[in-house]
Structure formats: C-alpha cells, structure tokens
Design a protein around this nucleic acid. Structure first.
Length: 201
DNA sequence: CACTAGATTTTCT
DNA sequence: GAAAATCTAGTGG
C-alpha cells in the first residue's frame, strides 16, 4: 500500500520536493462499471522536473497568475494538470506555500499495478513504454483536467504515498527537457540507470 | 542508432 | 497569430 505522506512534505522548497518525490508511488483507480470494483493503477516516480516562479522563464507561473496556472499558486500538495500540443496532458505536484506558484512535473514512472489497464489505454504492450514520459503517464493512469485542483493526500481519485527510499547517491541531476527558455537550469532529477526514465541523463 | 515532421487545440500576446 | 513542460511513425545510416 504505502504510508501516507504528511502535508508538510509538500511545503518544502521546490528543488527539494522534486528529489523527495523520487521513489514515491502515484496512484489512480479504475472502476469497473459491471462489478463496481475498483482496481489500483499505480507506478513509482523515477523522473521529475522542478518549475519555480522566480527567474524560471520555462515555468507556466513566471509571469504571474492566469486562469490556466492558478492551481500552481495553491498550497503544496495540490495536483496541477495542463493540456498541451493539442492532445496531451501532463501532471504536476504543486510545491511550497500558498501564493508561491511552483510545481514539480512528473515525467516518468515505473509501473507497479494495473499494468493491463495501462496497456489497454496506451495501445502498447511493452511495459517499458507505458509510462516513460509525462503525457504517457496521464494516458496510462487516466489523468485528465478533471483531476486538476485535487489534493494528493485527500483525493479519492489520485494520491501519492511512500514506496521506496531512494539514496541521494542514486539520484542524477540534469537539464530539463522540451523547453525553449531557461534551458540551462539543472532541474531535472531521475533515478540512476532506471529503465523507465524518459531519456538518459 | 539519430533525427525529423506532423498531429492538434488551448492559451496568452 | 504563434508557441507550447509531447508523442509517434517514418527516414536514413
């Protein structure tokens, strides 16, 4: 199952939260309409990126609050989902205290449970290709904008729990992917040699 | 293996 | 009107 995290866990500085999220378990549930039974669909976080408000021109929040990014300004622990490139969703963990405007993008998971549900949703069999990218995660776990604004400790649809302890020496730091501004900040964190990472560090 | 084009629509300028 | 925190299939070596 994994233990519950504390709300204080999410309030730390964004770069620290990013590292701390490695090894945590992201969980959604799929309800079967016939039986009413709920199946857990989950994975361990193996790659993240930090986005802050101050001086980070790649962050959605860098020019202040807008209708889209308002959840980034809520208290740490909220779920920020955005839609991009006309077809993809990405999921973030909001960090720091209310009013700050920072978050951590979840970029890759190592699948734990509900693999066959992920395979059906993704139209892909190879487990290595199910959740090795931010939009793939949302497709595999059924994450949409409907979950934007939920809280990872209180939501019934999406949660974060403890899973594995990741040693500092197993964490790799590198530049963020897919951005055109503030490209040189080394704010991507991943688990060394993990086969589910979206791209080698 | 590396690289590129094309899909598609929200969001903010 | 342009850009966007991406993905996939396709090409060529």
């Amino acid at each position: 199952m994994g233990k519950k995290l504390s709300s204080a866990f999410f309030l730390k500085p964004t770069l620290l939260l990013a590292e701390s999220l490695l090894g945590k378990k992201l969980i959604t549930w799929k309800k079967d309409k016939r039986t009413g039974r709920s199946t857990e669909v989950s994975g361990m976080i193996v790659e993240v990126e930090a986005y802050t408000q101050d001086g980070d021109m790649a962050s959605h929040s860098w020019r202040g609050k807008t209708p889209r990014n308002r959840v980034m300004f809520q208290a740490g622990g909220h779920c920020y989902v955005y839609f991009i490139y006309g077809m993809h969703h990405c999921i973030n963990v909001v960090s720091e205290s209310e009013g700050t405007g920072a978050a951590v993008l979840i970029r890759a998971l190592q699948p734990i449970s509900g693999l066959h549900i992920m395979q059906r949703r993704r139209h892909v069999k190879n487990p290595l290709l199910l959740t090795n990218g931010p939009a793939k995660i949302c497709q595999a776990l059924g994450i949409s904008k409907a979950m934007c604004g939920e809280h990872f400790l209180r939501s019934k649809r999406i949660q974060l729990r403890t899973f594995r302890k990741v040693k500092k020496s197993h964490i790799v730091r590198s530049k963020r992917i897919g951005i055109s501004r503030s490209q040189d900040l080394p704010w991507r964190f991943s688990i060394r040699n993990n086969p589910w990472v979206s791209r080698a560090a």
